[in-house]
């Protein structure tokens, strides 16, 4: 029996379709669960919070949905060790819910993904993210190789990690910095960061390593046909590229 994964749909979520699709293509029993069916959430083994503009990004991206009743089940599940993956808006929600980096109380965020800098503009651009922790540090990345390089699309207006110095130091020292932006050859520098993110951060995990928040979308570069250059005779419908993160997620859920 494959693990049951709920892909949460808040009002304003827009990436549930492709997120469900890639989860299924790597063998998970994933389905979209919409806000009116929140009561069914505790019965799932794991949660994915997909991209979008939940509650219209009012106040700050992720701020309102972090207080949605759907998040009660996610927070409780995370505290009991269930795996939780948040992508883009889902990542913003996990930070606002205080689940990552998880250095403060629940729903009292110590860091946020906020307005891009230097220009506070939405940007859609192809990026690579590099695993910056030991793979086993986070259950969701455990099946990746060290320093795995994952192609993805950044598509956000609020993706810059911001926190005060004390909290940034905690993130760095506590092994929370799961992914950093990198060039296609794996090198890391400021030019690879599309949004001015502190520490070059593209993704964060919590202390227990069961929650992962990642800003760029690996699910939008997750099949052969998504790569304009990678299809010499390949099966264009096969998962590839960004799919490796979901494959690792599925691996971690294998024994569930």
């Amino acid at each position: 029996m494959s693990a049951k994964v709920a892909v949460l749909v808040f009002p304003g979520t827009n990436s549930e379709m492709e997120t469900v699709r890639i989860c299924r293509d790597v063998g998970l029993d994933a389905r979209a669960v919409q806000w009116s069916y929140a009561e069914s959430l505790p019965s799932y083994d794991a949660y994915v919070l997909p991209g979008g503009f939940a509650y219209e990004d009012r106040i700050r991206a992720g701020a309102i949905p972090a207080h949605d009743p759907m998040m009660d089940a996610v927070i409780e599940g995370a505290q009991r060790g269930k795996l939780v993956l948040g992508i883009c808006n889902g990542a913003q929600i996990l930070l606002e819910a205080g689940l990552v980096p998880g250095t403060g109380p629940v729903r009292k965020p110590t860091a946020a993904f906020t307005r891009n800098a230097p220009v506070p503009r939405f940007v859609c651009t192809h990026v690579h993210v590099k695993l910056a922790i030991e793979p086993s540090r986070c259950a969701i990345t455990a099946a990746l190789e060290r320093e795995a390089l994952i192609p993805a699309w950044a598509a956000h207006g609020e993706g810059r990690l911001a926190a005060n110095d004390e909290h940034l130091a905690e993130i760095a020292a506590g092994g929370h910095l799961a992914f950093v932006y990198a060039h296609a050859d794996g090198t890391v520098d400021a030019r690879a960061v599309p949004n001015g993110s502190a520490l070059g951060c593209a993704g964060l995990t919590n202390k227990a390593g069961n929650v992962l928040a990642i800003m760029p979308h690996p699910e939008r570069d997750a099949w052969e046909f998504n790569h304009p250059d990678l299809r010499s005779g390949a099966n264009v419908l096969a998962p590839s590229g960004g799919a490796m993160l979901f494959a690792s997620f599925a691996e971690a859920l294998k024994d569930t």
Partner: peptide, 28 residues
């Protein structure tokens, strides 16, 4: 680049990569 060209995960040719954009809209 201010437009999301890849939401839905179906994009085969985003803007700037060719003279026309292309998608694979039917799953599978």
């Amino acid at each position: 680049r201010e437009y999301d060209g890849v939401v839905r995960g179906t994009t085969v040719i985003p803007r700037g990569y060719a003279d026309a954009g292309a998608i694979a809209p039917i799953p599978g």
